[in-house]
């Protein structure tokens, strides 16, 4: 699985990068991002876009967010 690590970026850069990717993605395109924790504020933004996603919290506190463009 190809994961884009966004943990080393200061806010709002990680969210901005995810939203920019999503707005440019083709239907059925998939991406997975690693963030420092479960990005609850991101979810409100995702609901405004044609996509579905799931989140997995890791043992080290980081979270993997997998997004599918619809």
């Amino acid at each position: 699985m190809n994961v884009t690590d966004l943990c080393g970026l200061a806010p709002p850069e990680p969210l901005e990068r995810i939203l920019v990717w999503l707005d440019a993605a083709e239907p059925d395109e998939v991406a997975t991002f690693r963030l420092p924790h479960v990005p609850y504020p991101l979810f409100d933004h995702l609901t405004l876009r044609p996509c579905c996603w799931d989140t997995t919290e890791q043992a080290d506190g980081t979270a993997l967010v997998r997004i599918v463009r619809q």
Binding site: P11, P12, E13, L15, E16, D23, P41, H45, L48, R49
Partner: peptide, 17 residues
């Protein structure tokens, strides 16, 4: 920024904090 981005889904003039 979060609120701005929610109201303006397409990237606008506000790019960083």
């Amino acid at each position: 920024w979060l609120d701005y981005r929610r109201q303006r889904p397409l990237a606008g003039p506000l790019r960083h904090m």
